[in-house]
Nucleic acid binder design. Structure first.
Length: 495
RNA sequence: GAGGAUGUAGCUCAGUUGGUUAGAGCGUCAGUUUGUGGCACUGAAGGCCGGGGGUUCGAGACCCCUCAUUCUCCCCA
């Protein structure tokens, strides 16, 4: 049987890790440069910490962990026991399972079934619905879905010891039980920077500049799109249905994908009338330069106070003295996460067809969910895996990342290799990356090994060289070679 | 959650309307060549044709089921 890894996960080889580390280091350096401090949180959180924070769709994608990781732990059986009671008392839980045969395989009392039997029942398609319900009853932990909510939890837990505004950055993997496809994985890294405890729009400016700096350093052309949730709130108010804000944002977020007609169709399905939809259409049709868009929005919303505030904030960001390239107002930008309330940001790569490579926004009351109200925060996130894919496609990784062993000592026998080993340790003290071939072998093989690892220099010490206390240094790439004394080796320059 | 595609050697893939012993390239190993590689030539190893069931005299190929991988939509980074 061939070994495999779970769907949506990946192994990383040396070359990939070097490139990924290059991205991580770049982001980390910029974060530190702006005064952010590192934080790490556990891979798993309590399930209740995560649920309800990411919207209905998001909740479905939370990677749940069965209680204590063991599906047949005592809590699991307790859950089964409860179900069984219902079963004996009138099959409450089984009524809605199609094809459930009440006489089989449950002819025995439940507690007499051994774990193997239960497992085989659990794997039976007929019962999968029932068992997935049961699983959710006993699953109390989950893998983290993003870094923002764990951060909010951390802030709430350590509120009294932190000084505000609190600026932290976090670079860790997150997990989503999504169907993988291009640019989408089940395990992937996020790099987040958040500020909590400050309402100042200066934070927005700072984080926008972080985006700008990082992508400049990575040599990637990007477009940074901004909007403000207040615009969407105002839109909902204007349409007479403030409670419809989620329906509206979900629908208009799709504009660039499905087009105006389909969006209108969807809005209708979500219960909006024609007058309301025509207002939304006017909003979505706003075009032009940033200034033109803002002016059009001012007209459309006229006296609406929420919209005024949103436009004011956007204007502040645009007019602030900065040299951010490609900062674009996009009123159709909505972003799925429920907790955003102010500025929202999304970064897209130029010339590569892939989802967004970064996003973020302001959330007025994130920690309120954890009992610490009135703390406004702002965060951004980098999608490293997608940034990697984009950089790979555009071929913008610096070639200098491909570092490898510099020197390979040939192994030509017992006594020869001992001398070679001593010399090699001298080179290593000089910080020259060196290896010795693992066994005495034909030249052919040792040369091939060096080529494979693209090692530039090989050093030959055989019986001749032993006698004369010399060694042959050969540059494989140029073919040049020279014989020098062994004592000269540590001052040789391996370029 | 919805809909496609693909599973044949370590890797990339051929395999005709179903027909004898399933092929190629690359890689691996050995040799030509025991101290100077990359090239070339010769040879070898390596396959439950994803798994199960069915149709047939006969299945890698056709049908059903299943598992896995992958892509699109939804949603997201």
């Amino acid at each position: 049987m061939k070994p495999t890894i779970p769907q949506g996960t990946r192994d990383f080889n040396a070359e990939t890790i070097r490139k990924r580390n290059y991205i991580f280091d770049t982001i980390r350096n910029v974060f530190e440069l702006y005064g952010f401090q590192p934080l790490e949180t556990p891979a798993m959180e309590n399930l209740e910490t995560l649920t309800g924070k990411y919207g209905d769709e998001g909740d479905k994608l939370i990677f749940r962990i069965l209680d204590s990781g063991n599906p047949f732990s005592s809590d699991f059986f307790k859950g089964l026991g409860n179900i069984l009671k219902d079963y004996n008392e009138g099959t409450k839980h089984f009524q809605d399972i199609k094809g459930f045969d009440i006489d089989s395989p449950w002819e025995k009392p439940f507690w007499e079934l051994n774990p193997e039997v239960i497992e085989s029942i659990a794997n039976d398609k007929k019962f999968s619905k029932y068992f997935s319900n049961l699983k959710s009853e006993v699953s109390q932990k989950a893998l983290r879905y993003d870094l923002t909510i764990p951060f909010a939890r951390y802030v709430a837990m350590n509120y009294s010891q932190l000084s505000f505004p609190f600026k932290r950055y976090q670079i860790q993997p997150v997990w989503r039980a999504d169907r993988p496809q291009k640019g989408r994985y089940r395990e992937f890294y996020q790099c987040d920077a958040d500020v909590v405890g400050s309402n100042s729009l200066l934070n927005e400016i700072e984080l926008l500049n972080i985006y700008n700096d990082v992508f400049k350093r990575l040599n990637l052309a990007v477009e940074i799109k901004i909007n403000n949730r207040k615009m969407l709130t105002a839109l909902a108010e204007l349409c007479g249905g403030a409670d419809k804000i989620i329906d509206i944002t979900v629908a208009i977020d799709k504009l660039d994908k499905i087009g105006m007609d389909k969006v209108k169709e969807e809005l209708m399905q979500r219960g909006l009338n024609e007058d309301q939809i025509s207002i939304i259409e006017k909003y979505l049709l706003i075009e032009g330069t940033n200034d033109e868009k803002l002016n059009a929005a001012k007209k459309l919303f006229s006296e609406n106070e929420t919209a005024k505030k949103g436009i004011e904030e956007l204007e502040y960001l645009l007019n602030f003295e900065n040299n951010i390239s490609k900062l674009v107002v996009d009123f159709t930008l909505a972003r799925g996460l429920n907790y955003y309330t102010g500025t929202i940001i999304e970064v897209k790569a130029h010339d590569v067809k892939i989802g967004s490579i970064g996003g973020g926004g302001r959330y007025d009351d994130l920690t309120g969910l954890f009992g610490v109200p009135n703390l406004s925060g702002l965060g951004i996130s980098f999608g490293v895996d997608r940034i990697y894919d984009v950089m790979e496609e555009l071929n913008v990784f610096p070639p200098s990342l491909q570092t490898t062993t510099q020197v390979l000592f040939f192994n030509l026998g017992e006594t020869e290799s001992k001398v070679a080993f001593t010399l090699m340790q001298e080179l290593r003290k000089k910080n020259i990356k060196s290896e010795i071939y693992h066994e005495a072998a034909k030249f052919d093989k040792q040369f091939k090994y060096a080529e494979r690892k693209s090692i530039s220099y090989i050093i030959i010490i055989g019986s001749k060289e032993l006698e004369s206390k010399s060694c042959v240094v050969k540059n494989i790439k140029t073919g040049e070679q020279e014989t020098i004394f062994q004592t000269e080796l540590s001052s040789f320059s391996f370029e």
